[in-house]
Design a binder for these strands. Structure first.
Lengths: 200, 200
DNA sequence: ACTCTTCTCTAACAATCGTTAGAGAGGCAG
DNA sequence: CTGCCTCTCTAACGATTGTTAGAGAAGAGT
């Protein structure tokens, strides 16, 4: 890992725990093991570190969104109750919510949305707008498959979205992201979907 | 309004917009129109201002919770669909979420939960634990009244709680709290309850 | 007239913040 | 060997932060 990468890694860990303002350049340099002026060789100022992190995150997200369609079109694998849903959830989990870099970035955005307009927008896009669109797409497929009516789907996706957010905050965005908490999250998501599918 | 009250008022407005750390003693004093040393006559340090605000909020909340039982026991007034629910919602809205001091305190806690353990606990209590308990109580009353089964009620209250949170963040905890946004919030809450009552 | 209390001021303090100028160390190309 | 480029260092800068010592002003009670 290069010095620049190490700086970004340490900064991300600290920012996502204490917030951008609460972390000083000296904190980061102390942890990395360099002098402050060395940091300024790699980044033009403190904001530049944050900007580099969000830029990296943006690229990561674009990559994910680029591959979403082919995954959604895959037929349901064995052990899955319906097309798209569980596949999409593991996709949403393993390569986004559970993925270490993304998880820390989400925590960082969650804290910093109140101090930074650009981050607020990115946070809303990557945690609300984009997921909602994907979830809506899935529910509409299920509606077309006859699982429920289109009107029901429109309401259900809102309920689902709100509930997923609650679970995400509860299990994935505070404290350490342990294997146990991931599994409990996945289990509750699964239970929720089972409930939805049964009731109709 | 005394100087001390004015300080707390200005501090609350600033803290709830920019966060505790981002607001300096000089910012507050400039807005109030006093010198820094005058502030230190009324508060022993910066943290003391925050503590005074949370103490005042705690008292406010205790007063609200103290009166919750008698309100829940009132019979449904005309124009209401079911006992307790709408009454409780206006109670939750008018004297809590819409109430200016509480609304600003919630915003402050929402930002500061990530930098302050005590505020994190207060935030979870006043925005999750307490409301959930009250909502559970209402849904259990509805279950006993035969509107749905107790098992259904346990799931419905989770859905309801998650959905209310989403609406609260969407309408009440960002930007200016206008009369229009309050009404849109109330309307969506109402629609949600109608949907729940119909489906059973 | 006097003191005592309450409140506000002037003027500074030390600590920490982000940031920079400039010197050295090491490797690679000529 | 020389010069150049990349990277890291020492050492400081000015600005801002929370905080304090101590002096005045105004009113109430004696």
């Amino acid at each position: 890992m290069t010095t620049k990468e190490k700086i970004m890694d340490v900064a991300l860990h600290m920012f996502s725990e204490r917030g951008y303002e609460a972390v000083s350049i000296r904190d980061i340099c102390g942890e990395v093991g360099i002098k402050e002026s060395t940091l300024y060789y790699h980044f033009k100022n403190k904001k530049d570190i944050l900007d580099s992190l969000t830029a990296k995150f943006r690229e990561h997200i674009e990559g994910l969104l680029g591959g979403v369609d082919e995954i959604a079109d895959e037929p349901a694998a064995e052990g899955q109750e319906f097309v798209g849903e569980k596949m999409m959830d593991t996709y949403m989990m393993d390569s986004y919510l559970f993925e270490p870099f993304c998880n820390l970035m989400i925590r960082l955005m969650m804290i910093e949305q109140f101090h930074n307009e650009e981050i607020r927008e990115l946070y809303e896009k990557t945690m609300f707008t984009d997921p909602y669109e994907i979830q809506m797409d899935i529910f509409m497929r299920l509606a077309k498959a006859g699982t429920f009516t289109e009107n029901e789907a429109k309401w259900l996706v809102r309920d689902y979205h709100a509930y997923m957010n609650m679970l995400t905050y509860k299990y994935l965005l505070n404290g350490e992201l342990t294997e146990e908490r991931k599994q409990r999250y996945a289990k509750e998501v699964h239970e929720y979907m089972q409930r939805i599918m049964k009731r109709q």
